[in-house]
Simulated assay, not measured.
Amino acid sequence: MYARLCFFVVLGLSLVACQPTTQPTTANPSAMLQKTDIAAPVAAKKPKVFKEHGHERIDDYYWLRERDNPEVIAYLESENAYLKEMMSHTEDLQQKLFEEMKGRIKETDQSVPYKDNGYYYLTRYEEGQEYPIYSRKKGSLEAPEEVLLNVNELAKPYNYYNIAGRSVSPDNKILAYGEDTLSRRIYTLRFKNLETGELLEDFIPNTGGNAVWANDNQHVFYTVKDETLRQYQIWRHKLGTPASADQLVYEEADDTFSTFVYKSKSKQYIIIGSYQTVSTEFRVLDADQPTGEFRIIQPRERGLEYEIAHFKDKFY
C-alpha cells in the first residue's frame, strides 16, 4: 500500500511544482525554493561499442547495468543523497500529502472470496500493515480462517519483499509460492506444508514465480528467465529432490517469443504457451502423466494468434 502511495506523493509534488507562479500560497516562499547550490552527481562515460547489422552504436553508460559493481553502487548512492538533499525543503509537504492520501484508503480491507477445490480463498489487509494476509476457509465462509501466508511477517528481514504465484496442490495440502527479495521479478519457489505450517526443504531459485501442479501432488512445472528477464524455459520439479535434479521440458529458442505454463480449467492438462506480438503456440500434457511428452496443438505461424480451452474430451 505504501509503495502505491509514494507514487501519488511524487505526483502531487510534481503538480505543486507546476502551479503558476501567480497562484497565492500560505507557505513560506523562501522555504519552498528549490536548492540550486548543490552539484548533481555525474556518471562517468565509459564507451562500449556495439556492432550489429552493419551499424556501430556507442553506449557511454552501459557499465551502469553492472548491479554488483561497487562503482555503480556508489554512484546510485550519490544520486539518492542528491535527491534527498534537493527535496529536503519539501519534507513537510511530502508527509502531509502522504497522510492525506493514506486517509482516503481503507486500510482494513478484504478481497471478494473465491471458491476453489472445496475452499474459499481470501486476501485481506490490516490497518497499519503494509502487506497482505492470504487465507482460506474450508467449505463455508463461516468456517474458521486458515492463514496461508502472513506476508507482513515474512517481509520483516528484508528491505523489499514480494510474493507471487500462490498455488495449492490438488490435495489441498501444500502451498507453492514465489518469493522475490531483490525487486528483480526473479523468484525463489518455496513450498509450505499446510497441515503442519512448516516449509519443505525444497526451494527453487531464479524462477518466474509460478508453480503449476500435476495431479499426483508431487510434480510442479515452472518457468526460468534469461538475462533479459524473458521467460524462455519450462522445468519440472519433483518434491523431495534438489533443484539441481529438475528436468528441462521445454526451451523457447526464438528470442522474439516468451513462454509460460498453466493448468487448464478442467484440471486435466498442463499447458505450455509461447507468444510474441503476432503469433502464439500451445503444447499440452495430461496432468495425470507429468513425466510424459507435451504435444503441439497448432504449430506457430506468423500472423496466427489463438488460445485454447479444454472441456470434457475436446479442445476448443
Rank of each mutant, 00 (worst) to 15 (best):
K35G: 00
V249L: 14
G103V: 04
Y75N: 06
K84M: 05
L154C: 12
P290N: 01
F311D: 08
Y232Q: 09
F221G: 04
E77I: 00
H310R: 01
K45W: 06
Y62E: 12
E198S: 12
E130C: 10
P20L: 07
T181H: 01
C18G: 12
L194T: 13
D254E: 03
I308Y: 02
H219E: 08
M86P: 00
L97M: 06
V16L: 04
Y158H: 01
K45N: 12
T223H: 00
S266Q: 02
E52N: 13
P170N: 07
A31E: 14
T259M: 03
T181N: 06
A164N: 14
A309I: 13
F50D: 10
I58R: 10
S279A: 15
A214P: 00
V278A: 15
V212K: 00
Q129S: 11
V16F: 07
N215A: 05
V16C: 05
N69H: 04
Y134M: 05
M86I: 08
Q247L: 13
S244F: 04
R104L: 11
I271M: 03
K173R: 13
R230E: 15
E252R: 01
D246V: 09
P29I: 06
L248N: 15
G240T: 05
E293L: 13
M87T: 06
H219R: 11
A74L: 03
K96W: 12
I272C: 05
I38E: 07
K173L: 09
A155H: 07
I204K: 02
T280V: 03
H89D: 11
S169A: 11
Y160R: 06
S264I: 02
K225D: 09
R185H: 07
F282A: 03
Y125A: 03
L76F: 03
A214V: 01
T22W: 13
N193Q: 03
R300M: 15
N162H: 08
P170D: 01
Y114Q: 05
R104D: 07
L141Q: 05
F315A: 00
A31W: 11
N69R: 09
L83M: 10
L239P: 06
L93P: 04
D254M: 01
T259G: 02
V151L: 15
E79W: 00
S167R: 03
H55A: 15
S244C: 11
H55T: 15
A214M: 00
E252L: 02
Q276F: 01
D226H: 12
M32T: 14
L239R: 07
T256W: 12
D286K: 03
S244E: 11
K192F: 08
D116G: 01
K106A: 14
E252S: 10
V151I: 15
M101A: 01
T22Q: 08
T123G: 10
R302L: 13
L229V: 12
H310K: 01
K265N: 13
M32I: 05
A44E: 15
L11W: 10
